[in-house]
Nucleic acid binder design. Structure first.
Length: 565
RNA sequence: UGGGGCGUGGCCAAGCGGUUAAGGCGCCGGUUUUUGGUACCGGUAUUCGAAGGUUCGAAUCCUUCCGCCCCAGCCA
């Protein structure tokens, strides 16, 4: 293990790392301890990924550790299922909490003792006010609050009442324990916040052992103190809670003094990241579940084929600051492409097939042609691809009356079939509706492999699949879940849903060697994009999700109407 | 009208009194290319929310103003 001063010394990359660096240098911190504190009431999304990358990343860089802690203080909305799925997602993203798995509920005994400690010191009291009354007494943003008539109960009475709250003598809402801070504070969180409430609910981990539960404010910082968390990193909306966080730490017999720092949460264009809205998308069936490839959840991204390293790279690139931000999804896409380009094996797949008969190719003959698996990685090796008289090419690779800049197939034009031969279109066959249904071509046997010995050049290279050897497949193409860059706030956000966010292509013709690829291996269908096999696949139907398309400069030319320029 | 946070190019983001104001994404143009992919090269802020002030010198210090975000759950 290297010297602390040497660790994480690649220059302070953001204000959090800067603070940690200073704390280490000043000796205020010996070992950096952070924590990732999800509430087990939902699935993790890419916003959580940013937090994980920060917390686990910082711990690793400075030679410390990061705890995984479930903030399970509200049994009415938390479920065991999420405790499992969250751990799975954290691991998938690539993080390891080792032995350091904690639950706020694991600290309930200490928390209860600390509440009693506060009461004994006259710093907390049992309030009989109803929820509505508490709200009225709290005042408003501009007017100070008023003291509760129960604020000055004796220590003995408070102790007795709190004990009875714990014993289950009262109903929910009948009484709460409040910290006695300052009802006139400009910071509403300091106006005698509720720190314990009665909840007659079964807890996923403590069962029916408790009927009183600490609130976030009385659990989070306390858990940090118990676990020895040095830097408690949370999002901006908790900045207002910091004075309370510190007040409680100062007034409790904590074994350690943690510090809270706030950074801005992640926002992404063309999607939503709030738990409430994600739940609504799932429950109202606007998507097919939490792992729908269009969802920004980790499960959705995983199914979509976004690799964990790409997501980590993305998190690093967006940075850590305190300013509100909306990151363009294009950056995420870029990270995915950059990673996938290096690791994804290439295959050929025709998404919208157009049959081509090579008239001068011997009927019934098949030959195997060599293809490179990944031009970015020689180690990926080569494979053989079957070629025969009838093949499929992409419909959009043929135009009967091509504009000047179109380099693909057209009547009389010659193009290269990747790794195979040059072919020339000699005839176009249409149905009664006038739609092109088949192409007749001739090939040049001398161009086997894709090069012309006479030095002849072609401007277009097409992907293709031998008709008789093709695997039939279904391909799902995805687009932004929301058309607008920033979906509206409030309930109107559903109006911005992109009706074309999912396009299912059936009858796709895929290269047979796909069978040799691992089910979870990312791949590139040449000239199309990066794909991954979907779990919906069966023995008879291969289903692939497009993770992200390749950059498409031809589409840009077409979109700008410059194809004829 | 209270408290907290934030304002650097289309989107992020370095910058911490003396730099021609990093870098990434995006966009534009070009080179290479058996993926119109990749890679590579070049372009893309006389200006840092605004106005004053301090200073030989300010995105960086001071003042005022403007704008945006968060807070009135017994949610986290």
């Amino acid at each position: 293990m290297s010297d602390a001063a040497e660790i994480g010394d690649e220059g302070s990359k953001d204000f959090v790392r800067e603070v940690i660096r200073e704390d280490l240098d000043a000796g205020r911190t010996q070992t950096v301890v952070t924590r990732f504190p999800p509430e087990p009431n939902g699935y993790l999304h890419i916003g959580h990924a940013k937090s994980m990358c920060l917390n686990f990343g910082v711990a690793e860089e400075f030679g410390g550790r990061c705890h995984l802690r479930f903030d399970d203080t509200n049994p009415t909305r938390e479920e065991h299922e999420f405790i499992e799925s969250i751990q799975e997602d954290v691991r998938w993203l690539g993080f390891d909490w080792g032995e350091h798995l904690f639950f706020a509920s694991g600290h309930f005994d200490t928390l209860y003792e600390w509440a009693v400690h506060l009461i004994r010191n006259g710093r907390a009291y049992v309030d009989d006010l109803s929820p509505d009354e508490i709200r009225e007494y709290r005042g408003t943003l501009t007017e100070p609050g008023k003291d509760s008539p129960y604020r000055d109960r004796t220590v003995e009475e408070n102790l007795d009442l709190f004990t009875r709250m714990k014993a289950g003598e009262f109903t929910e809402g009948e009484r709460v324990l409040r910290a006695k801070v300052d009802m006139a504070s400009g910071n509403i969180n300091m106006r005698d916040p509720v720190i314990y409430r009665i909840l007659h609910a079964e807890h996923p981990r403590t069962g029916n052992q408790w009927c009183i539960y600490p609130t976030y404010d009385f659990a989070h910082g306390q858990s940090d103190a118990i676990e020895g968390v040095t830097h408690s990193l949370c999002t901006l909306e908790f900045a207002d809670h910091r004075p309370l966080y510190d007040w409680l730490i100062e007034n409790l017999p904590v074994p350690f003094v943690p510090r809270q720092y706030e950074f801005s949460r992640l926002n992404l264009t063309h999607t939503v990241l709030s738990k409430r809205r994600l739940i609504q998308l799932v429950e109202e069936n606007h998507v097919h579940g939490w792992d729908d490839p269009r969802m920004p959840t980790l499960r959705g991204l995983r199914r979509r084929g976004y690799p964990a390293p790409a997501i980590r790279d993305f998190a690093q690139r967006v940075g850590v600051t305190k300013s509100d931000n909306v990151i363009e999804v294009q950056l995420l896409d870029h990270c995915a492409r950059e990673y996938l380009n290096k690791v994804a094996e290439r295959r050929m797949g025709v998404l919208r097939p157009l049959k081509v008969v090579i008239e001068n190719y011997p009927e019934g003959e098949t030959e195997e042609l060599e293809a490179v698996n990944n031009p970015e990685d020689e180690g990926a090796g080569k494979r053989m691809v079957p070629f025969s008289r009838e093949i499929y090419v992409e419909r959009e690779d043929f135009m009967e009356d091509p504009p000047r800049k179109f380099f693909r197939l057209g009547p009389g034009r010659e193009v290269r079939l990747r790794y195979a031969y040059f072919i020339t279109c000699t005839d176009v066959i249409k149905d009664e509706a006038g739609e092109v249904v088949e192409l007749r071509c001739t090939y040049d046997p001398a161009t086997r492999g894709g090069d012309a010995p006479d030095g002849r050049k072609v401007k277009g290279t097409l992907h293709w699949v031998s008709a008789s050897h093709a695997i039939d497949g279904e391909v799902r193409l995805y687009d932004h879940l929301f058309s607008e860059t920033e979906p509206a706030m409030g309930d109107g956000f559903l109006d911005g849903l992109n009706k074309e966010s999912l396009e299912v292509l059936e009858g796709c013709k895929l290269e047979p060697s796909l069978r040799e690829l691992a089910d979870d291996a990312p791949l590139q269908f040449e000239r199309q994009g990066y794909f991954i096999r979907d779990p919906d696949s069966t023995d008879t139907l291969a289903v692939y999700n497009r993770s992200v398309g390749l950059r498409d400069s031809w589409a840009k030319i077409v979109a700008k109407g410059q194809a004829n320029a």
